[in-house]
Simulated scan of single mutants.
Amino acid sequence: MNSQSPHYPRTLIHLLMLLMVALIASSFPVGALITSGLPPEVMMLIRFALAALLFAPYVFIRNGWHLPPPRRLLGYAILSIPLVVFFWCMFEALRYTSALNTGAIYTTVPAMTAVYVFFINREATGTRRASGLLLGTLGALWIVFRGDLDSLLQLDINRGDLLFTLGCLFMGTYNPLIRKFYAGEPMELMTFWVISFGALWLLLLSIPGLDQIAWRDVDSNVYLGILYLAVFTTLVSFFLLQLGTIVLGATQVAAYSFLTPVFVLIINLLLGSAVFQWQLLPGIALVLLAMLLVQQEKRFPQNA
């Protein structure tokens, strides 16, 4: 499928990417608060299905009540798979690790994306961008290990960290696949069908355990948390992610995830669930520098 970028001011898109990262970062502490309320696949099923239902009237009134061509539906189905794997891994990982750790590990996604972009989109990575990706990964490691070299050398990581890293490996394919499958359709159309297929896969995963859940015993805060995730960190953030990828390119958009641990830390401090640790500052400085390096390098032309 050929891609044709929508015409939006790049400054506006960059501001929207900051909003996107803030929303994504908020999903880690919110997810940590509700992760024990329901099985991860069931929680994500409700999240995706609710987002699709809320978005459906807007999408169909604006674009008509018809199915996309089979080839596009196949593309949307493929696009939804990395998201399902990523979010399942995230919620399962938050049972064993912290929101700050997952936020820091998420900053490895740009480096993974750069590798996938080379093979999927045939986009080269320049020296400055490669340096930024390396610095961002080092900064993420610094934050995960709190600047403790002994812990790093001993690979003091838990089951949750490993599981979320697997999810990030899948998430790294998402941005380049958007570039590959985007065919000039309205962004809201792509967003809706990707979320809908995600809900379908999650339904298939959840069916065996749905009748074993005591729905009335689930804390109301769990449902409120899922509602927040459905609207802000699913519906809104997916739309912004896809729009930014088409306009700016996969690697530049992925580079914004370098800011995720910074936003996670700020949110946790505001919620009173974390205490600022000065040893995190070098890692934060590295991820900020990494993002600037990646954003400043001009994007290489892509071969569709």
Rank of each mutant, 00 (worst) to 15 (best):
S5G: 00
L134V: 13
A140L: 04
M171A: 13
G132H: 07
M43A: 15
Q296K: 15
I246M: 08
G167T: 10
E185N: 11
I34S: 10
S206N: 00
A230Y: 08
L53H: 07
T173R: 01
F197P: 05
S220H: 13
L152D: 06
E185S: 04
F28T: 01
P68H: 03
S257H: 01
A230V: 09
I105E: 07
E123I: 11
A285E: 12
Y174Q: 09
F55E: 04
G167I: 05
P68I: 03
G64E: 01
V294K: 05
Q212P: 00
A285G: 11
A183G: 07
L204R: 14
T97K: 03
S220Q: 14
W88F: 13
S36F: 12
L162W: 05
T137M: 10
N175D: 08
L270Y: 06
G31N: 12
R179F: 06
V253Y: 00
L135S: 02
I178F: 06
L18N: 14
Q4T: 08
T102Y: 08
G283H: 00
L288A: 04
T233D: 08
P208T: 10
S237A: 14
V144K: 01
L133Q: 06
L162D: 02
R62T: 12
V231L: 12
E92Q: 14
F239T: 11
L280K: 02
I178G: 03
L73M: 12
G139E: 00
A56R: 01
L83M: 14
Q242D: 12
F48E: 03
L269S: 03
V85C: 10
L203Q: 08
Q279T: 00
V253G: 03
F197K: 06
T137L: 11
T165S: 13
G37N: 00
A32K: 15
W201A: 07
P261L: 03
L79W: 03
A25M: 07
R299I: 03
H66V: 02
P110G: 02
V294L: 03
N221K: 13
S196A: 15
F164N: 01
L200A: 11
G198P: 07
E185I: 05
Q295K: 04
L100S: 14
C168P: 05
Q154D: 10
Q296E: 10
P82K: 04
W201E: 03
Q277P: 09
